[in-house]
Amino acid sequence: MGVILQDLQGNQYDLKKYGLFTDAPVVSPPSPRHTTDTIDGRNGKIDLGTTFEGRIIDVSMAFISRDRIDYALLRDEIFALFDARKYFYLIDTDQPGKRWKVKTASAYSIDRKVDIVGEFEIQFVSMSPFAESIGTTLNLAESDYVPQFETNEVPQYVFSANQFEVYNDGETVDPREVPLVIEFKGASTDLTIKNITTGDTWQLTGTTNGTDVVKLDGIRALKNGISIFGETNRKVLTLSGHGWNEFEITGAIAPFEINFDFRFYYF
């Protein structure tokens, strides 16, 4: 029970260096933000959709210094560690496969219990309403991935068939909001990739050869690193949440390969 802190490069902070002990984080519930409109003469409101605010995470901490002089030095190092100008990742040790991107939310005070012991409660803010999986779908074996939703099949994210299914363990993945990389390698004529589950279709007008790599990276479309956005139907592919997404490819010429690289997002 406690927290692990990582910098944005994934390097773990050594909390023992600061003499820090932590309790389990307390994560605030999702806070909805409803968008509505009204029409004169009509009762009620028109629902235009719901989004979510960021999240607040409270953590109780304590530290033990070697002596009175070391107490002040350690306190100042903790102030620098939780510099509110920088982001870092917070991981609940009870959910080691997820992380929150946070920064210090507000001022906090350290209660000096005895000469060498300090206790404080600190509040962090995540600008996103979602925690994310530490690993991506192409390196899940290297992370502490624990799926939230049961599936009898082991998810795969590299395919060489015209029809396949992509499993999304978390909330909807929209490349306009979060990273999603889809790579197609191989020959094709008027390549079309369709997510039957969501109804999204991406199309490329023209051909690729066996050594070409087509990459859909967020809203960008690239072939061998060069933009081909103007040769597409200017659409994006999204992934429905909490289950399987059924895909169909047309225009591809075997042998080819397609892979999906993304993180899972959780409330």
Rank of each mutant, 00 (worst) to 15 (best):
T38N: 14
L73G: 13
I134M: 12
R55A: 08
E142F: 09
L15S: 06
I249F: 00
I116Y: 10
D92N: 15
V3D: 07
R99Y: 13
L191V: 14
L8R: 10
F262R: 05
D58G: 10
D169G: 11
I39S: 09
S143E: 09
Q9G: 12
Q6D: 13
D7L: 14
I57G: 13
V158T: 07
D261Q: 06
I64C: 06
F120P: 05
I182E: 03
N139E: 03
Y71E: 01
F159T: 03
V158N: 00
D174G: 04
R85M: 04
F120Q: 05
L5Q: 10
E177K: 06
E183H: 04
T51S: 09
R263K: 15
P96G: 14
V173M: 10
Y13S: 14
S31I: 09
Y71P: 04
D76L: 11
K101F: 07
R234N: 02
R85D: 06
I56A: 10
V3H: 04
H242M: 12
D174V: 06
I39R: 11
D70M: 10
P25C: 09
R42L: 15
Q156E: 08
A62F: 06
V158A: 01
S240Q: 11
I226G: 00
V178M: 02
S65E: 07
V114Q: 14
A24R: 15
R263C: 07
D111N: 15
N168E: 02
